[in-house]
Design a protein around this nucleic acid. Structure first.
Lengths: 197, 197
DNA sequence: GTCTATAGGGAGATAGAC
DNA sequence: GTCTATCTCCCTATAGAC
């Protein structure tokens, strides 16, 4: 791996920060270059265009996210239901809060460049479906084991997921500690609604 | 009210659309002028700057939102608890889904122009607190009436609010009908967790 | 109040030397 | 692979006529 590959990786990191902080339109190629401490023109040796940087970055981050989610779900597969859900809940939050990659995703999802809009929304939707499907399996298992109520597992999974994703909306309004605390409270309310009698 | 006031209102509407669709950075003054069918220079007779349009627009929208939320909460104050929460839930969603003003708010909240960042986050945070406080009162009342469980009313309110706000995240991924349906399911799960025994 | 014209400053991207 | 220099376009904002 030569110098080039290293530079490309550093461009990735700088671009991630820039897109997360300022969005696609607001991110500036010259600022990214300055952050990497290379000339602006050098960016165009490594990437065809600004849009190209975004596309590659997005694909990378989606893959990492998917791997992480699968690892979280798998890592706790032998726990009893409540403990398992709580573990997923906490690890999801830990991964998302103060994570530049998730900031990036949220911002790019909200204001995608027109050309990539369809692709970004579609991939985001897929990713959500996959995670909710995983959760639904866990709910189904919990019902079988009588740890959960006889309810529609998809509805339970979707509700669980909704509460989780709200950290993305709220976390900018409070500290990470505060967010985790509030989320713990939400978990207890939710658990109360789905646990077996 | 002369021609000027009318033009200003039309600029507001066009700017709202532009900011909601493209964010602050992405919105273009010439496109806004074209939409209003006036010359670009005329914008600067009615507003000092682009930032100025955003500021006035944001303040207007926050006021309308606050009024609407208060109207929703007040309009159902004589209902029993479940019906009241369900009404708030539905009316909140109806107001938010497919509402350009709320799109605008979400996008501006996620990527505010640097100069207005603090102000926008602070106002958004206040607005949330106010709504959650209203909800907490309703929960407290419901507990008194034995319609709800003996739980911390703030936690219940916060959980309720979190599920609500997720429409903002999810509504871009599905149709309005689909979103309302999924939200109905979430409401039932939530209600199950807070209702009295 | 609204227009034409243009200032003035970036922005993304490229050519070509080293 | 990285640089200097530059092109070209686009955007916000203003000057000044009507």
């Amino acid at each position: 791996m030569g110098q080039g590959a290293l530079t490309k990786e550093r461009i990735f990191q700088a671009a991630l920060k820039a897109f997360a902080l300022h969005g696609y339109e607001g991110a500036r190629m010259d600022k990214i270059a300055a952050e990497v401490d290379i000339n602006k023109a050098t960016l165009y040796f490594h990437f065809k265009s600004k849009e190209d940087i975004l596309r590659e970055l997005f694909q990378d981050i989606v893959l990492k996210y998917r791997d992480k989610m699968n690892a979280i779900v798998t890592g706790c597969k032998d726990m009893p239901c409540k403990e398992r859900l709580k573990t997923i809940y906490r690890e999801y939050l830990e991964y998302n809060l103060d994570n530049a990659e998730m900031d990036f995703w949220n911002r790019i999802y909200y204001l995608p460049p027109t050309n990539l809009r369809e692709e970004i929304i579609s991939i985001t939707s897929e990713s959500k479906k996959e995670f909710v499907a995983n959760l639904a399996c866990i709910m189904e298992e919990g019902i079988k084991q009588k740890e959960l109520q006889q309810m529609n597992p998809s509805h339970m999974a979707y509700t669980f997921y909704n509460i989780l994703t709200c950290i993305d909306l709220s976390s900018g309004l409070m500290s990470k500690e505060q967010a985790l605390l509030e989320m713990d409270n939400c978990f207890e309310v939710l658990w109360n609604g789905i646990k077996g009698m």
